[in-house]
């Protein structure tokens, strides 16, 4: 079902972007883990006292003194949500909508390769990129924590946290890919594919600030990624993860169906 030639060629096309995002993640992950130091933690606490709303918005509120909860506050509130999301937005757009808009999709269609196969190939490229980024982040977290604070990290909790994060990123990938398959015009694909996730993240920020604003969490998928529950290994965390995964599969399926049925003005 997947065209190998196209798959590897598109993977090569993702390479540069993957390296850039991996670089950014490397910088933040190592920096944040390195800051898990009583003295640095004090500095962060001062930040929290200075601007409690802003720190809360990006999820940077501390609950307990463990490396995993430190990481979940400072990495899983913004950095690990936003950067892979930006990668997904750029790549999902480039894999379908840009080709349709520019007309080069014609070259892909003018070959004995089924539309479904083209679409599934592009989807696998997107998913591969997300998996690589998440896999890299996990390995790096384990390595950095192991090197800087041996024995301090609850590895099982980290893996639970990252599986939830992966589900969230796959959901976003499904959504962006769906937008990329749906629209003729690259502008609309980008407006919807980037606009909706960014808006949802902003709502998550508002919800994090608490009080009445907390109701915003019902409007954003980010709230289905429940870091605390996942760290504790509670059912709610797994439920959110499951919902996200099901959503991801449904969106990806819808994208393939839409692409299969639609007119392509190329």
């Amino acid at each position: 079902m997947v065209n190998r030639t196209l798959y590897f060629r598109e993977l090569r096309g993702s390479w540069k972007l993957l390296v850039i995002f991996a670089g950014v993640l490397t910088m933040y992950i190592t920096m944040i883990i390195w800051m898990y130091d009583p003295k640095m933690a004090e500095a962060m606490e001062q930040f929290e006292q200075l601007m409690p709303e802003l720190m809360a918005a990006v999820g940077m509120t501390r609950t307990e003194d463990s490396l995993i909860s430190f990481m979940s506050s400072y990495l899983y509130g913004m950095i690990l949500l936003v950067f892979p999301m930006v990668y997904t937005i750029i790549r999902a757009h480039g894999l379908v909508a840009r080709y349709v808009d520019r007309g080069s999709m014609a070259a892909l269609l003018a070959a004995p390769v089924k539309r479904t196969s083209i679409c599934l190939t592009q989807l696998s490229v997107l998913v591969t990129g997300v998996l690589l980024l998440m896999g890299y982040a996990t390995v790096l977290e384990l390595a950095a924590a192991g090197a800087l604070f041996p024995g301090e990290l609850d590895v099982a909790a980290l893996l639970r946290l990252n599986s939830g994060l992966l589900a969230l990123q796959l959901f976003l990938a499904g959504f962006c890919f769906f937008c990329s398959c749906l629209f003729d015009d690259a502008r609309y694909s980008l407006a919807a594919g980037a606009g909706v996730p960014v808006l949802m993240y902003l709502m998550q920020m508002l919800a994090n600030m608490g009080g009445k604003l907390e109701n915003f969490r019902y409007l954003t998928v980010f709230s289905l990624f429940q870091t605390q529950s996942l760290i504790q290994g509670e059912g709610a965390g797994w439920l959110g993860t499951g919902v996200l995964l099901v959503g991801a599969v449904l969106l990806a399926g819808a994208a393939v169906v839409v692409f299969f049925r639609r007119d392509l003005p190329v």
């Binding site: 030639t5 060629r9 096309g13 520019r102 007309g103 080069s104 014609a106 070259a107 269609l109 003018a110 070959a111 004995p112 390769v113 089924k114 539309r115 196969s117 190329v266």
Partner: peptide, 29 residues
């Protein structure tokens, strides 16, 4: 469409390819 394409050659009215490839790469692709 896919079955038909096996035995069909097409020149589009407006030619756009994968622009970052060179000619040889594109034909090999």
């Amino acid at each position: 469409a896919a079955e038909i394409q096996r035995n069909l050659g097409y020149i589009p009215g407006e030619i756009t390819f994968f622009e970052e490839m060179n000619g040889a790469e594109y034909l090999r692709f």
